[in-house]
Design a protein around this nucleic acid. Structure first.
Length: 483
RNA sequence: GGUCCCAUCGUCUAGCGGUCAGGACGCUGGCCUCUCACGCCGGAAACCGGGGUUCGAUUCCCCGUGGGACUACCA
């Protein structure tokens, strides 16, 4: 390890590439990122792909693009490089092999030749006897000669950690404070699998040390394996990093957040039109809260105010309702041009002709009051781009005498002038209501229906302003019965 | 089953011995308004239970209870 790295805050997000970035992973990545930024340290991306069976093509690219979309830029990582590479564990196998020799030599680790079947049977009987399922240590005390013989015979084997049976491991966690575990309940964890790849525990410890990680910020599911990790650090003669175990993100039934109970892929939230800014803001509030009552933050603002000591201990349910509100808030409060640009793909997908940018901006301005995601924008803009659909009841209303009078009046009025201000339009509406002796819904509903396709919606000046004079006249004329 | 962790409105949370237990989402009443939406104002809604410690516990300690994680040659 480079000496200069020693004083610096260095944290990492270390996902295994299982296909996509999970929202729980995003939260872990975000907290790591924020801590690094706040402390002026480094944020590193490391890929933990030591499980060959779970290789998924494209998963790495996916992960990287999701992190980029979210604005979580890392200082070191597989695609950006850095002084501690490679940052993909499958490319570091020789490093693990070298280090395991050291453990073998010091008797901290030992070869185990037990078959998977034996292990399964063992666990089965242990469970039946209501004993905790653990390795029984069959190969723990094999003599060197016995090991040599089996190895020479080419017997398949793994390498296990020789964890002490006595004593107690006590450690500090920034969030949980003191945690204590009896060594007798810690298993002789497999460190090197029969395919020569390391397990999480070995690779993680070695890499965290070699990469100069100062704070291990990760999910609470790792809390119970910390004793193994500490034992490894000490066996290697390394300093133990500071541990920060984040509370879990939960399904609405309080189990660990998983798919099948809604979307967990960050990617799919993007596809539905959730803004990265809203996702980040929302996720940040799951387990973290500022000292005041403020809840709306940009990523840059979070970088300034984030601190580990304001992280909660209890798990948090991922509440879609609040995300929807927050996303809607961002959609309504961002610059309309920005929202228009981001909504574009959704409109294009619908085949709407948005070449008239001025009109499009106006449509967005109206539509965004109604939605909680960009995906919902298209249904709210449709009436300005497509032919209106009417029900039988609609047609009945539009054929009524009053409706017809209104249409005739407006066709006339609109044709008379080429440009209207909203104020002039509103004044004309007041005037029309007076001369026709109609008011309120009696006047507005038929008019809005013919122009907008619904009796409920934006006010008339807004609709006419978006449609323009010609389209407005055309829409009215379509329902004028005798010309 | 064992070990570890956790526990304030339905949800996210503030609280760090004395508060009318605060905010946000959601729900709800009203205002704005032709309507819808937005927005604004108000309301209902919580300290898991039992013991301690203390003049006084949501807050500190213990025991229950409940929930979760881990218990793989997955991470």
């Amino acid at each position: 390890m480079v000496d200069a790295l020693q004083e610096e805050v260095r944290v990492r997000f270390a996902p295994s590439p299982t296909g996509y970035l999970h929202v729980g992973g995003l939260r872990t990545a975000l907290f790591n990122y924020l801590f690094a930024r706040r402390e002026g340290g480094k944020f590193i991306l490391r890929i933990e792909d030591t499980d060959q069976k779970r290789f998924i093509p494209g998963a790495l690219e996916n992960l990287i693009s999701s992190l980029k979309n979210m604005g979580l830029h890392y200082d070191e990582g597989p695609d950006v490089g850095g002084p501690c590479g490679p940052y993909i564990q499958s490319e570091r196998v020789d490093i693990y092999q070298r280090h395991i020799q050291e453990l073998l030599a010091s008797k901290t680790a030992y070869y185990c030749f037990c078959s998977e079947e034996r292990l399964e049977d063992l666990r089965e009987t242990q469970r039946k006897m209501k004993r905790p399922p653990m390795y029984d240590g069959k190969c723990r005390d094999l003599t060197e000669a016995e090991v040599r013989e089996k190895l020479d015979a080419g017997a398949p084997c793994v390498i296990r950690l020789r964890f002490p049976k006595e004593g107690r491991t006590v450690f500090d966690d920034v969030i949980r404070r003191k945690v204590a575990v009896d060594n007798s309940v810690v298993d002789d964890q497999v460190l090197i699998k029969s395919d020569g790849f390391p397990t999480y525990h070995l690779a993680n410890v070695i890499d965290d040390h070699l990469m100069g990680i100062s704070h291990v910020i990760r999910g609470e599911e790792w809390l119970s394996s910390v004793p193994k990790h500490i034992y490894l650090y000490k066996a290697f003669g390394w300093d133990v990093p500071t541990f920060v175990h984040l509370p879990l993100l939960l399904n609405s039934d309080r189990s660990k957040l998983s798919k099948r109970q809604g979307d967990v892929a960050v990617e799919s939230y993007m596809e539905k039109g959730y803004l990265p800014e809203a996702m980040i803001n929302f996720i940040a509030l799951l387990g973290w809260h500022s000292a005041d009552d403020r809840e709306l933050y940009t990523l840059q603002e979070l970088e300034q105010v984030f601190s580990l000591d304001r992280i909660n201990k209890a798990g948090a349910i991922f509440d879609l309702d609040k995300l929807n509100w927050m996303n809607g808030w961002y959609i309504r409060n961002f610059d309309v041009e920005v929202i228009a640009e981001r909504t574009r793909p959704f409109f294009e997908q619908e085949g709407f002709d948005i070449s008239d940018w001025q009109k499009y901006i106006k449509v967005i301005g109206v539509a965004r009051d109604y939605v909680s995601s960009l995906e919902e924008m298209a249904p709210r803009g449709r009436m300005f781009y497509e032919e209106l659909q009417f029900s039988e009841d609609d047609r009945t209303l539009m054929a009524e005498e009053n409706s017809q009078k209104i249409y005739a009046y407006w066709i006339d009025a609109l044709k008379g002038r080429s440009a209207w201000t909203r104020e002039a339009l509103q004044a004309r509406i007041e005037e029309a209501m007076k001369t026709m002796g109609l008011k309120g819904k009696k006047f507005y509903f038929p008019l809005r229906l013919a122009l907008f396709g619904n009796t409920h919606g934006p006010d008339i000046p807004t609709i006419i302003d978006i449609l323009g004079r010609d389209e407005s006249v055309e829409r009215l004329q379509r329902f004028l019965i005798d010309g």
